[in-house]
């Protein structure tokens, strides 16, 4: 796998001819060898539907393609970085938290809060929640950023996990999600605020939560 964690905030990636990586633009901090950085219009695969999805979701985080031969260091904003290995699973992650990922992974878009679909999108726009995420699936690895580091919470049948949407980073597994609110929570944070809802994740899998309520 091409990513190696050098410190809590820095990863090293190897690129070789015939392979490519995608990374957030401007997140390269240093490189050695012959490496090209090209702004990517679509962020790789996914085609028009995923582009439209991202446009609607306002998730058009600019990516760049990294190709050539050498090693590249990635880090961004002083955020903690966690490398996630995918072995056939699907990782759901907010696009602006993706520092870099294997070009071999398939990208898509998912709405969190109702299990995807047009109605989900409409709801998302009405509530202004913007809870669309990018999905990555296949075999490869992704470097994910979080403010203050990540804790992993297991999701098990009959044991759902509720997450503050501001602190949500990513999840994988056979997981359903919906927006809920705990007793008293809306009174606490105010009905009008986007924080009034929590993301309920149920099924079987893992959710990554950051040590902060600040979006990146």
């Amino acid at each position: 796998m091409p990513f190696r964690e050098l410190s809590a905030k820095l990863v090293e990636a190897r690129v070789a001819p015939g392979e490519r990586l995608f990374s957030q633009r401007g997140a390269m901090v240093g490189y050695r060898g012959e490496v090209r950085f090209t702004p990517s219009i679509q962020g790789g695969q996914g085609g028009w539907m995923s582009m439209i999805g991202r446009r609607v979701a306002n998730e058009a985080t600019p990516l760049m393609t990294v190709e050539g031969q050498g090693t590249v260091l990635f880090g961004h904003g002083g955020h903690h970085v966690e490398v996630v290995e995918l072995d056939g699973q699907t990782l759901c992650v907010e696009a602006d938290r993706l520092l870099a990922f294997d070009g071999s992974l398939q990208q898509g878009t998912l709405f969190l809060g109702r299990d995807g679909g047009v109605r989900g999108m409409v709801r998302g726009q009405i509530s202004g929640q913007g809870l669309f995420t990018t999905t990555l699936s296949g075999h490869g690895s992704a470097a994910v950023m979080a403010h203050g580091g990540i804790i992993q919470l297991p999701i098990a049948p009959g044991r759902p996990v509720h997450v503050d949407p501001q602190a949500y980073v990513a999840h994988f597994g056979d997981v359903r999600n919906k927006l809920t609110t705990a007793l008293g929570w809306r009174e606490l944070v105010g009905r009008g605020s986007g924080e009034a809802f929590q993301l309920e994740l149920s099924g079987e899998g893992m959710v990554f939560v950051q040590a902060s309520e600040e979006k990146l």
């Binding site: 905030k9 390269m28 901090v29 240093g30 260091l73 002083g78």
Partner: peptide
């Protein structure tokens, strides 16, 4: 901002890093 990482030339570095 984050640990210091040491590298030996030849290397190209983002100006801000």
């Amino acid at each position: 901002n984050g640990e210091v990482h040491f590298m030996e030339p030849p290397v190209r570095v983002d100006p801000q890093a």
